[in-house]
Design a protein around this nucleic acid. Structure first.
Lengths: 188, 188
DNA sequence: GAAAATATGGAGACAATCTCCATTTGTCAA
DNA sequence: TTGACAAATGGAGATTGTCTCCATATTTTC
């Protein structure tokens, strides 16, 4: 993929420091409120260094996002090999809700990224979608759910959950949506 | 509500010009990419005038948003008086999808506003929610849908539809979600 | 039609982002 | 080791977008 000759030791150290601090600030939810130059200071590097590693604020957010999505996808694949498809789907959807519940700040970040039309976000979204599509397809195959609704609809529901992370009764409502979707998917 | 002594004639004229131009730019989806000062020029007023009428970019977006939501809510109430509750719910949900379909840019704007934690957006959202809650309550009352899922879940689904406005097969998926929600809501 | 009240617009203050490059740090071959 | 080359650093300052201020213009009122 990227030609990528290995980074020099100090460069790698700085990059790691930036990513680590970014995760930290993400979870507090303040990532997009902070001056970007201040963020550099916070991570203990100069602004020049920050900009060389991540040319924009979004690029940094994307780097963190990408890793998280990769983990989620792996989880989906794992579930599919260990559970019947319909259960795998239910478990995965609840897992995503759990995940967002313990990483509120990241949900906000994703929402912000969405509005920028980021490529990485789109790509990650596609990866996640592939995972969901695979589970849904397996569930349809097994006859456990109806076959006339696209997996995309499930994705849209997940988007909704992620997008409404700041509503007061979020957790309950999110579970409600999952319930609704799962029971809407049952064969007639 | 607002004390509101009537605006001077020229002030009203400028305000209208700003709103009109805002709607126009909204629908192209470029509203948040445009320099705000340039927007003033585009609408044919000085920057000072722009800022006096709308102290922030968001305030202007909100003013447009508020009017749209008011219209949607009115539509909801109207449906409730002319159709059986369950049909009113189905019709309204499809109506919202239609609306977003013909105002793509506005959907993006709403998504952006969401990330700013805007008060007006929250208020509008609550108004919309009240409308949805009323319909859902009426439908539950009539025994047409199950009573163990909160109207909030329906709102989250709507958020999802609005938030995924830029997905390629959006319209189909949006309809899919509505189908899913409506059939998930049927009594067991 | 003159005074008072209200609104205007754009020059410039301010604030955040990003670039540039003289200096430092790491790597590698001899 | 060490010297020489490449890679990376950081922060001063240029650039760019946001917002304020007020001398001037327009509308309203009496």
């Amino acid at each position: 993929m990227t030609a990528a000759r290995p980074l020099r030791a100090d460069a790698q150290r700085n990059r790691d420091a930036l990513m680590a601090k970014a995760r930290e600030v993400f979870d507090t939810g303040d990532f997009f409120d902070l001056r970007f130059d201040d963020f550099a200071a916070l991570a203990g590097v100069g602004t020049g260094t920050l900009y060389r590693h991540f040319p924009t604020r979004e690029a940094l957010a994307e780097a963190v996002y990408r890793e998280e999505v990769t983990a989620l996808c792996a989880r989906a694949r794992e579930l599919l090999t260990t559970l019947p498809a319909v259960e795998a789907l239910a478990t995965f959807l609840h897992h995503v809700v759990d995940y967002l519940d313990t990483h509120r700040g990241l949900a906000r970040t994703v929402a912000t990224l969405m509005t920028t039309g980021s490529d990485t976000l789109a790509e990650g979204s596609r990866a996640l979608e592939r995972a969901v599509t695979d589970i849904v397809a397996a569930a349809v195959e097994s006859g456990g759910i109806r076959d006339d609704v696209d997996a995309g609809a499930v994705m849209v529901a997940l988007h909704g959950i992620s997008a409404s992370h700041d509503r007061p009764g979020w957790r309950t409502e999110a579970d409600g949506v999952i319930t609704l979707v799962l029971s809407g998917l049952r064969p007639r």
